[in-house]
């Protein structure tokens, strides 16, 4: 079984983010890390392989990322967790790409690889659109099992079963492979790379692909190919510091008085 995991490098979610004067995310102002939510997808891929006879059974995990040169660091992190190889789509023309372009580029790369199972996170913590997996499903005409809190793969029957966890409740879902599965953050606890894992990752192959390798023209992508445009932006007025009191036995009553004064009760 061939598993492909889509991972993105994003600014650390602990950092305050801002837009640059060019109206794009200022990526230089924060450390770049592997999207936390994609770590769950990498971990789940490792567990699926372990539950199905391990690498000895011929299962492989390939990471796929589209991003600038430095996105290799995020790929190395995933490789040090235990993935086998990585594909890195990088091309200067891709700077400033939006979701439509990203999904197109990723879809072309996925077609080339022809995996049995594609895993993704629920959202990239920078743009927070949560649309790439559904877009991939539409482009590749593959079924999409979203919000998976449990994934069970039956390699022989080529069937994937998931538990979909949303506000509506829990739904047991089933699909034939190949299929795209999006995992939620409650699915597992991602492992920390071991020292051995980090050393081994240095020797694992990262294959670079440019747009031309995917048969996409540079003029169709990037900022020039954008389908939506930022007109302007402004910093929201900072919230004025309000009243802060210490509870000396009547904190709860003071809180009620505040709500009453604001006509909130």
């Amino acid at each position: 079984m061939k598993i492909l995991v889509c991972v993105k490098q994003v600014p650390d979610s602990w950092a305050e983010k801002k837009l640059s004067p060019e109206k794009v995310l200022d990526r230089a102002s924060a450390d770049a890390v592997l999207n936390d939510l994609d770590e769950y997808a990498v971990e789940e891929a490792l567990r699926i392989v372990e539950a199905n006879g391990g690498v000895e059974a011929g299962h492989t995990i390939t990471l796929l990322s589209m991003g600038p040169e430095r996105a290799q660091e995020a790929l190395r992190k995933g490789l040090s967790m235990g993935a086998d190889a990585a594909l890195h789509i990088t091309d200067d023309a891709l700077a400033g790409s939006d979701a439509l372009t990203t999904s197109r580029v990723l879809a072309e790369a996925i077609k080339r690889e022809n995996p049995d199972l594609i895993l993704t996170g629920t959202e990239s913590t920078d743009a927070r659109m949560s649309v790439i997996p559904a877009m991939l499903s539409e482009r590749l005409e593959l079924p999409h099992l979203s919000f998976a809190g449990v994934v069970v793969v039956d390699v022989n029957a080529k069937i994937v079963k998931t538990k979909r966890m949303t506000d509506e409740g829990v739904e047991a879902m089933e699909s034939r492979m190949p299929v795209i599965v999006t995992v939620i953050e409650k699915i597992n606890e991602p492992r920390y790379p071991s020292f051995k894992g980090i050393m081994a990752a240095k020797k694992k192959p990262i294959t670079e692909l440019a747009l031309a390798d995917l048969g996409i023209a540079a003029s169709e992508v990037g900022n020039g190919g954008a389908w939506s445009e930022v007109k302007d932006f402004a910093l929201a007025p900072a919230r004025g510091a309000g009243v802060k009191i210490a509870d000396e036995g009547n904190g709860g009553s003071a809180l009620v008085d505040f709500l009453a004064e604001k006509r909130l009760i």
Partner: peptide, 28 residues
């Protein structure tokens, strides 16, 4: 979280919240 609060109480939620609950019920 106090930096973005319009009204903040420095205190134990196990005493502040029940007192607020009682106060709201009394008003209603």
């Amino acid at each position: 979280i106090f930096d973005i609060a319009d009204f903040g109480v420095i205190g134990d939620l196990f005493s502040v919240a029940p007192q607020a609950t009682a106060g709201i019920k009394a008003r209603k």
